[in-house]
Design a protein around this nucleic acid. Structure first.
Length: 414
RNA sequence: CGGGGUGUGGCGCAGUUGGCUAGCGCGCGUCGUUUGGGACGAUGAGGUCGGAGGUUCGAGUCCUCUCACCCCGACCA
């Protein structure tokens, strides 16, 4: 991408109302713009990161046999009345009359729709188990939107729903998804760990939340640094400083952000919506369900919260918008020509390149490159015939020829 | 939803006890000089001061209502 043509300019300052680190850096970098409280537009650069997050999640959902589909956001009141959640969720659900006298709402989550759909597809034990997911926008009228992408009113979420004949099968799959989630966060470059938490209104059993340590977090987790035991402070009987119930080592408390959450729903929704299947010996039984969510924007915001410095964002290898940010510091025709060739050559080698061709001072280019936070920067100037590869994380640098640069970059992302 | 705060060119801000043509910095346009860590000079464009109503000879400034946004809290599949 040629930076002079990029839709999305960097800014030196951001509205004083934007208090969270993720919102400030993402807005300053031109990744997102705020449309209203808790509602953000994704500009091309932001979408680039978003897609990378999305693809990793998609790959791992496919790997646990999830089938992707897309459900509606606009839904009728009648459906939600069947589970009682129309009135239960009236504070947080956008509900309105459609002008023809029907009451409709924007989905906060999709258990109702997916269960209705499943009723048409699941009739027999032979149809089970089955796993379906979608990546779609959710709407929640949060009383107070805050923390940039971490708590929005409209946000994209991957939600997976599983359907099972018995508890054992549900449990097995639940922990399979649990591990898939850990893989997702690891691939994204986030240090996430799973935490036992309340099932809330979704489930009587423990649910699991996937937490990332950061000051911007809204949750407090009590955890053991030794064996990985962790519980949300809301439910735990262990106080920070107590001995870990599993291994006896002292526990501690940490602020965390919940990047994902998985629930064993059991028969809660199948009962209220009448989702049954026929067993091998001809009985009718309720289907057991699980639901599994990850907020994509929240993940993106969490990466920024967890990985930045005074100069800007430091994207992880998996989330970097471009593999390399090429900075041409020269205004000399010959060097410009060289820069164009380097740009072409990098792209021919399958690399994603952001090329800063703008007619501005070098200082700005450096500042912007650090703010945007691509993992690697590549400098071309009159000063040297070689290229200078800079690692965003620690600003270490090395002088290389083009072929070596390509090798280095490929190795870096491997 | 309770408490607190803020709304003035795109962004950040100043604007005195009500007074003249509403300023400054950044950004943007044009011209010139600059080029290894947010350069400099010249010049130009850009505003119904969040909105509505009121008080007054006169309102960015005072009053009432309203909207939006931020912070703390409550809430949060």
């Amino acid at each position: 991408m040629i930076q002079s043509k990029l839709f999305g300019k960097t800014r030196r300052e951001v509205s004083k109302d934007e208090k969270s680190i993720n919102a400030e850096l993402l807005i300053r970098g031109g990744f997102i713009e705020k449309h209203m409280a808790g509602v953000y537009n994704y500009l091309p650069l932001g979408l680039k990161v978003f897609r990378k997050v999305e693809n990793i999640i998609r790959e791992e959902m496919d790997a646990v046999d999830g089938q992707e589909m897309l459900m509606t956001a606009l839904q009728p009141k009648e459906l939600w009345d069947k589970t009682g959640r129309w009135s239960e969720m009236e504070d947080i659900m956008y509900q309105f009359e459609d002008g023809h006298g029907s009451e409709v709402g924007l989905a906060t989550t999709h258990e109702e729709v997916v269960t209705e759909l499943a009723k048409q597809q699941i009739k027999s034990y032979k149809d089970l188990p089955i796993y379906i997911y979608q990546i779609q926008d959710k709407f929640r009228n949060e009383k107070r939107a805050k923390s940039g992408l971490l708590r929005g009113r409209e946000f994209s979420m991957k939600d997976l729903y599983s359907f099972h004949a018995d508890e054992k099968d549900l449990d097995e799959y639940y922990f399979r998804v649990h591990d898939a989630y850990l893989t997702i966060f690891k691939r994204l470059g986030l240090e996430a760990f799973s935490v036992e938490a309340s099932g809330g209104s979704m489930s009587k059993q423990f649910s699991h939340e996937f937490m990332v340590k950061t000051e911007a977090g809204e949750d407090i987790t009590v955890l053991c640094t030794e064996c990985g035991w962790a519980q949300n402070k809301e439910i735990t009987k262990i106080k920070a400083g107590d001995k870990c119930p599993k291994c006896g080592v002292k526990t501690e408390e940490a602020k965390t952000v919940e990047a994902g959450n998985i629930f064993r729903l059991g028969t809660k929704y199948s009962e209220s919506l009448g989702l049954k299947y026929t067993t091998e010996d001809g009985q009718m039984k309720n289907v057991l369900m699980g639901s599994y969510g990850i907020g994509l924007g929240r993940v993106m915001g969490t990466v920024v919260e967890a990985s930045h410095d005074k100069d800007g964002i430091i994207w992880t290898k998996a989330t970097t918008p471009y593999h390399v940010h090429l900075l041409n510091l020269s205004k000399n025709d010959k060097t410009n020509e060289r820069a164009n060739k380097v740009y072409e050559k990098l792209r021919e080698n399958g690399l994603e390149v952001l090329f800063d061709d703008r007619d501005i001072s070098f200082g700005k280019k450096f500042k912007d490159a650090d703010l945007l936070g691509n993992c690697l920067q590549l400098i071309i100037s009159d000063k040297q015939s070689e290229l200078e590869l800079i690692y965003r994380k620690d600003h270490s640098k090395e002088l290389l020829d083009l072929d070596s640069v390509i090798k280095k970059i490929n190795k870096f992302y491997k």
